[in-house]
Design a protein around this nucleic acid. Structure first.
Lengths: 338, 338
DNA sequence: ATTGGCACTCAGAGGGTTTGAGTGCCAGAA
DNA sequence: TTCTGGCACTCAAACCCTCTGAGTGCCAAT
C-alpha cells in the first residue's frame, strides 16, 4: 500500500507539473503546499514514489515528472473532476444555438470541444447501432437516372444517384418503390440485406438487372452507415504546444490516420466518470506515446452511438478536460435527442 | 534589363537551394553548373542579383537564398514545367478509380494531390455557378415531417427534413410538390428565389404557414450551394518540414482558418500555365509569409467551378508541383464530367 | 569583361568552466 | 520508528572563449 502522504505528494507533483511544465523538486513542493513536514521528508516520499515508478527523474539532478503510471493513479484515485464554470456552460449553450443537420451539429461540437479544452478535439460519426429504416424513396431525376433515398429513424438521410443506362419506366419505378417501402419500413439496418433475400424474384425477368442495381446501391448506403468517420478540430493547438513533444510530426501523422484513430477510440472503454482515458503508452499506437486520449460516448436518438473526445499531451489538465468532454458529450446527446 | 547570364545564375541558385535547403555560394555554383566562367565572375553576377533584391544573404559570410521576388521571376520566366512521369500519371488513374459521389471524389483528389506533391493539399467545394434545378422532391417521412430534396443538373443532391409541427395532409403535399416542380425545373439556382415570388398566393390561406416553411428550407438549400468549404489533406507534411519554418504553429492556424483561406484562394487569378501562385509575402495573410500557395481551377459539369491546390514552403519544387496541380485539376474536371 | 589573389567577416562547432537546482544519505532529534 | 538539518555530490544548462572555414568584396592584372 502507498501511504497517505505519499499520495498527496504525487497529487501535488502532478498538479505543479501540469501548471509549470517544469520538473518539480522537493523544495518548491513544500513551499507551494503545506505538508507540515520538511523538504527532506518529502524527498523520502519521492524516493518511494520513484521506486513504485509513479514518478521519474529526467536526470539525476533534476526534479521529478509523473510517469504514465503516475498520471493513471492520479486520475483514478486522486483527481476531483472540476465542474464547469458558468462561463463555460454558457459557451456550450451559445455555441450549439441554431444548429441544423447532423453535419452541422457535429462540426460545431468538435470546434466547441477544442475551444473549451484547448486541445485537439474529435468526433466520431454515429454508427449503425440499432437504427432502422424509416422510409425509402425512389425518384427519377432524368431519362435514365434514379435517385435513391434512405431515411433512418435516427433522422439520418442519405441519397445516391443510380445510373440505369436505359430509359426509366415510371410504372416500374412506382412498383419497385412500393415494394421496397413495404419490405423495409421499420426494419433494422442490420437485417436489411437478409430481408431483401429473394426480393428480385417478384419482378419480371427483364427487370432483374435494374432491380439488382438498385439493391446494390441500397446495400452500399446501409454499409455507409457502418463506415466510420472522424472529424477533427484544433490541430494547430498541438503545434502551439511544441515544447510538449519531442516532435509533433509523428503525432500529426497518427491522428491523420483515421483508421488507426477509429480503431483506438472504438476499443476504449468508458469506465470511470463516464469517460475513457488512455495515457501515454497505454495508446499502443506509435507516435501517440506522449499523448493522452480522452473520450466519452454520446447517443443519437437512443439508436446510434459513437464517441467524442480530445487528444493532448500526457501532461494535460485532466480535471478540466474530463468535465468538458463529459459535458459536451451529454449536451450533444441532448441536442440530437430532438 | 537583367543580363542573360545573371538570370542563369538565379535559376541555378533557386534549383540548388530547393534541392539542398542550404544557402548556395559562388564556389559550389560553378562546381555544379558549367557556366564557363570563374567563381569571381559569378560573384559579380550575384552582387547584381542582390542589388535587384532577387537574392539575399542570411548573413555576411553565408551563401545566398532567393527572395520572394527571386522565386517570382524564376517561376514567371525561367521555370520549365516538368511533365509528370508515367508513374505519376498511373498513380492518378488508379487513385481515382471507382469513386462514387462528390464527397468521395473530392476526398480522393485531395489525398492524391497531397501524396503527389508531398505538400498540404486543398480542394474547394464547387460553388453555385451556373447550376440549375434538375428536380425537387417532397416526401413525408413521418406524421409531421417532410423531406425536401433538391437535385441540381451538376449532379449534386441535397436534402433536409422539415418539421411542420402539425399532421401532414398527403393531398396538400402532392399539390405543393407538383407546383414546385412546375415552377423550378430547369431554373438556375441564382434566380430560384425570385421565381418563387408570389408562389404562396396559389394556396389557401390555411396552408401559407406550411408553404412558407418549405420555401424557407428551399432557400437555405440553394444558399448552401453558395456556402463554400475547403477540405485539406496532408497537414502532417508541414510538420515534417519543420526546418522550413521558424515555427509551424502560425501556419497551421492560418490554414485551419477556412474563411481566410477561402478568401485567399478565391481572389487568386490563375494566369500563367493555367495555375495561380502566391509566393511568400504575396499572401497578405499573416502566418503564411513563408509559404507559397499554388492553385488551379476545376469545373463540375461545366456549371460549377472551384479551385484545388497546395500549400508549401516558399522553397518548394515549383516545376513538379505546378504540373501536378494542373494535371490533377484537369483530371478532376474530367472525372466530374460524367 | 574576366580573373586570381587576398584580406575580411561571421555563424557555428568545439571545449572548458561555472552555476545552481536538486538529490541521496546520514546522524541525531522527537 | 519517523522526521529533520546538514552536507557532499551530480549534472544540465548557461556562459564564454577560441577556432574554423565557407563565403564575401574588392582590386590590380589580364
Amino acid at each position: 500500500m502507498i501511504p497517505e502522504r505519499s499520495l498527496e505528494v504525487l497529487r501535488a507533483i502532478v498538479q505543479d507539473y501540469i501548471a509549470s511544465k517544469e520538473p518539480v523538486g522537493s523544495k518548491s513542493l513544500v513551499e507551494r503546499h503545506s505538508f507540515g513536514v520538511s523538504a527532506a521528508t518529502i524527498r523520502n516520499d519521492m524516493a518511494f514514489l520513484e521506486d513504485e515508478e509513479l514518478i521519474h527523474a529526467p536526470h539525476t539532478s533534476a526534479g521529478r515528472v509523473p510517469t504514465d503510471k503516475g498520471y493513471r493513479l492520479f486520475v483514478d484515485r486522486l483527481n476531483e473532476v472540476k465542474p464547469l464554470t458558468v462561463a463555460e456552460k454558457h459557451a456550450i449553450e451559445s455555441f450549439m444555438q441554431g444548429s441544423a443537420d447532423l453535419d452541422d451539429v457535429l462540426g460545431r461540437t468538435v470546434r466547441l470541444l477544442s475551444q473549451l479544452t484547448n486541445q485537439v478535439a474529435m468526433v466520431q460519426y454515429p454508427t449503425l447501432g440499432k437504427a432502422s429504416v424509416q422510409t425509402v424513396e425512389l425518384i427519377p431525376v432524368s431519362e435514365t437516372r434514379l435517385l435513391l433515398i434512405l431515411v433512418t429513424d435516427s433522422g439520418r438521410v442519405q441519397q445516391h444517384v443510380i445510373e440505369l443506362g436505359e430509359a426509366v419506366d415510371p410504372l416500374f419505378v412506382a412498383e419497385l418503390r412500393a415494394k421496397l417501402i413495404g419490405s423495409l419500413t421499420g426494419v433494422a439496418l442490420s437485417v436489411v440485406a437478409e430481408r431483401l433475400n429473394g426480393f428480385v424474384d417478384g419482378f419480371v425477368a427483364a427487370r432483374t438487372g435494374q432491380v439488382n442495381l438498385v439493391l446494390e446501391t441500397l446495400y452500399d448506403q446501409v454499409d455507409a452507415n457502418r463506415q466510420e468517420k472522424i472529424i477533427l478540430s484544433g490541430t494547430a493547438k498541438l503545434a502551439r504546444r511544441e515544447e510538449d513533444f519531442p516532435s509533433i510530426s509523428p503525432v500529426l501523422e497518427a491522428i491523420e490516420e483515421q483508421v488507426v484513430l477509429l480503431k483506438l477510440i472504438t476499443e476504449m472503454q468508458t469506465d470511470n466518470h463516464g469517460v475513457g482515458l488512455r495515457i501515454g503508452r497505454e495508446n499502443t499506437v506509435e507516435g501517440l506515446s506522449n499523448t493522452s486520449i480522452l473520450v466519452s460516448g454520446y447517443e443519437n436518438g437512443g439508436s446510434e452511438i459513437a464517441k467524442i473526445g480530445v487528444i493532448g499531451p500526457t501532461r494535460m489538465d485532466y480535471s478540466s478536460n474530463i468535465s468538458a468532454v463529459r459535458a459536451v458529450a451529454r449536451y450533444l446527446t441532448k441536442t440530437l435527442g430532438n
